[in-house]
């Protein structure tokens, strides 16, 4: 898959799911890309580098999201 196509796919899918979910596991992204983890990682790394995606970490687990989404208050059902 071409990088631009992959980028669009990720942005579209994450935006679509954004109403209910703002943070995604790496495996979710690999599924969207329909790619093996190692190939997906190359794309995801580049997306982070270009700031299309950003990391979120609890300290033990890492997730990915579109920048600016998923405020803490949202996950606690306050907005």
């Amino acid at each position: 898959m071409e990088y631009e196509e992959a980028k669009q796919k990720i942005v579209d899918e994450l935006t679509k799911k954004g109403k209910t979910k703002s943070k995604f596991y790496f495996n979710d992204l690999a599924k969207i890309l329909e790619a093996k983890p190692r190939d997906a990682k190359k794309i995801v790394n580049k997306l982070v580098e270009e700031r299309v995606l950003e990391y979120w970490s609890s300290g033990s687990t890492s997730m990915y999201g579109l920048p600016g989404t998923g405020k803490q208050a949202h996950s606690e059902g306050e907005d």
Partner: peptide, 17 residues
């Protein structure tokens, strides 16, 4: 509060918000 988006550029680990 648990976790966050903080980190240094290009690294997904090493910093815990």
């Amino acid at each position: 509060k648990h976790g966050g988006i903080v980190g240094v550029f290009g690294y997904g680990g090493g910093v815990i918000g």
